[in-house]
Simulated scan of single mutants.
Amino acid sequence: MLAMKSPVLKCATLALFTLTLLSGCAPEVGSEKWCKQMEDKPKGDWTANEAADYAKHCVFK
């Protein structure tokens, strides 16, 4: 097994592990939970894709 001696490698591994855990918890696009989450998120932080998906799935059902 690869020994993680480098602090950079340790941080990168931890970041990847954290992102993997968080991505598994995201609600499905278009679900009630996702629409509510988007309503709570500041509009300035939305991506173009999120705005389009919100309009498609939450506004024009």
Rank of each mutant, 00 (worst) to 15 (best):
M1V: 06
M1A: 12
M1T: 06
M1K: 12
L2G: 10
L2N: 06
L2K: 14
A3M: 09
M4S: 09
M4H: 11
M4G: 07
K5M: 08
K5W: 00
S6C: 03
S6G: 01
S6I: 01
P7V: 15
P7N: 15
P7K: 14
P7Q: 14
V8L: 13
V8E: 13
V8D: 07
L9M: 06
L9F: 04
K10N: 03
A12F: 04
A12G: 07
A12P: 00
T13V: 04
L14M: 12
L14W: 09
L14F: 09
A15F: 09
A15W: 02
F17P: 03
F17S: 14
F17W: 11
T18Y: 01
T18Q: 05
T18R: 08
T18L: 10
T18W: 02
L19Q: 10
T20A: 10
T20W: 01
L21F: 07
L21Y: 15
L21E: 06
L22E: 07
S23R: 10
S23F: 06
S23A: 14
S23N: 14
C25F: 08
A26Y: 04
A26G: 02
A26N: 05
A26I: 08
A26D: 08
A26F: 08
A26Q: 05
P27G: 13
P27N: 14
P27S: 14
E28A: 15
E28Y: 13
V29F: 02
V29A: 13
G30E: 03
G30M: 11
G30H: 07
G30C: 14
S31P: 00
S31T: 11
S31D: 04
S31N: 07
E32I: 11
E32W: 02
K33E: 00
K33Y: 00
K33N: 00
K33Q: 01
W34P: 00
C35K: 02
K36V: 05
K36N: 06
K36Q: 12
Q37N: 05
Q37W: 00
M38I: 09
E39V: 07
E39C: 09
E39Y: 07
E39L: 10
K41M: 04
K41F: 05
K41V: 00
K41G: 03
P42I: 05
P42G: 10
P42L: 05
K43Q: 15
K43Y: 12
K43A: 15
K43M: 11
G44T: 04
G44H: 06
G44Q: 02
G44L: 01
D45S: 10
D45H: 03
W46L: 11
W46I: 10
W46N: 07
W46A: 07
T47D: 01
T47V: 12
T47F: 03
T47C: 07
T47P: 02
A48Y: 02
A48K: 04
E50T: 12
E50P: 07
E50N: 08
A51K: 12
A52M: 12
A52N: 08
A52G: 09
A52I: 09
A52Y: 09
D53N: 11
D53H: 06
D53A: 15
D53C: 13
D53Q: 08
D53S: 13
D53R: 07
Y54Q: 03
Y54D: 02
Y54K: 02
K56C: 11
H57W: 03
H57S: 14
H57F: 10
V59D: 06
V59R: 04
V59G: 05
V59W: 03
F60H: 10
F60V: 05
K61V: 11
K61R: 15
